[in-house]
């Protein structure tokens, strides 16, 4: 008795998903079952929740497959216009919730407040929000000396255990971090600066022939990036791991930066979740993968359960 819960980003800057086209199948002990998924939440709120119920009974294995149609877009920012956006008097509630600390993103810790104060030298509120975010992200990325590109714990045959994460606070003192840790830390710094920000866990299609990415060229996989809110405009995506290197320390903050805001490759990524373990009351288990299970209403089982995730992404091409 329990459930599998998956998040689907429905409306974001680079992703539009339509859960009216949701298809699910489930096998218990290898035997196909008639089951339907429950979809909760308003698609226009930006995110919906897909729940699959697991009946009570002695079970060795549960296999579920959930798919839906989505569109992904390339993204561009008009840098000059973005730099004119002013700080809001108050954030709208849907956005303001991404100012609060969350598991793995301990933005209320003094270390992040001190980092923001030192980096902005008291000019934060006098700097346009877009330029402030850009420089804070750059300075955060520059703090990391060693980045381990292996952000996923893999099981082979295309299946994934989940993201290798220490979270933002541990990452500030770690010898080596992962791209997921960089995302958590950048989001923590932006939240500490009063800018709503969130991680995005998504599926990547493979880059085809494009050499300008550090992600695999030839296969789909889970990926993670971050985004922050530009008041009245929407969420601006950026990928700190891709931004790293590429002359970042010397880059002019008034010029476009690769992988910050303007990302051609975003049409090869579809966002799923804004939390590594969504809808789990802030609990992140060992290696999260953007979805969660419960057993008998608990997020911890009285015995060892192993889960594996395979991203599914079939391209229907340009539309």
């Amino acid at each position: 008795g329990g459930s599998i819960t998956i998040a689907a980003a429905t409306v974001d800057t680079a992703t539009v998903s339509d859960l009216r086209g949701l298809e699910t199948s489930i096998r218990l002990n290898g035997i196909p079952q008639n089951t339907s998924a429950r979809v909760e939440g308003d698609p226009l709120s930006g995110s919906q929740r897909i729940s699959l119920g697991i009946p009570r009974g002695p079970l060795q294995t549960v296999s579920a497959r959930v798919t839906w149609p989505a569109i992904a877009f390339s993204i561009g920012v008009d840098e000059q216009m973005a730099a004119k956006v002013t700080w809001p008097r108050e954030w709208v509630p849907e956005v303001a919730k991404f100012l609060a600390p969350s598991q793995g993103i301990q933005s209320d810790n003094e270390i992040f407040k001190a980092f923001v104060a030192k980096t902005t030298e008291g000019r934060l509120r006098r700097t346009p929000i877009y330029l402030a975010a850009k420089d804070l992200v750059r300075r955060t990325i520059m703090e990391f000396r060693n980045v381990d590109s292996q952000t996923l714990v893999r099981e082979g045959q295309g299946t994934i255990r989940g993201f290798r994460l220490q979270g933002a606070l541990s990452s500030t003192g770690a010898l080596s971090v992962t791209p997921g840790d960089m995302v958590c830390t950048c989001v923590a710094v932006l939240r500490a600066a009063g800018i709503p920000a969130r991680p995005v866990i998504g599926i990547y299609s493979g880059s085809g022939s494009n050499p300008d990415t550090k992600l695999p060229k030839d296969r789909k996989t889970l990926c993670v990036w971050a985004e922050f809110n530009l008041p009245g405009c929407g969420w601006v995506p950026f990928d700190p791991y891709e931004m790293r290197g590429r002359g970042l320390p010397q880059a002019n903050v008034n010029q476009p930066w690769k992988w910050f805001g303007t990302i051609k490759q975003m049409n090869r990524r579809v966002g799923l979740a804004y939390d590594f373990a969504p809808f789990n009351h802030g609990m992140i288990r060992d290696w999260p993968a953007g979805w969660v299970w419960t057993v008998s209403g608990q997020t911890t089982a009285p015995f060892r359960l192993v889960d594996a995730t395979a991203p599914l992404m079939v391209s229907r091409g340009q539309i």
């Binding site: 599998i4 539009v16 294995t61 549960v62 877009f73 993204i75 599926i203 995730t309």
Partner: peptide, 28 residues
């Protein structure tokens, strides 16, 4: 236009369609 189109200065282009999802296995 597609739902939730961002307001300027953010712009979408080059849409691609996908069927996305997850295949999940849980075992004891």
């Amino acid at each position: 236009s597609w739902p939730g189109c961002p307001a300027p200065p953010l712009y979408r282009s080059d849409p691609r369609g996908y069927t996305v999802g997850l295949a999940i296995d849980i075992g004891a």
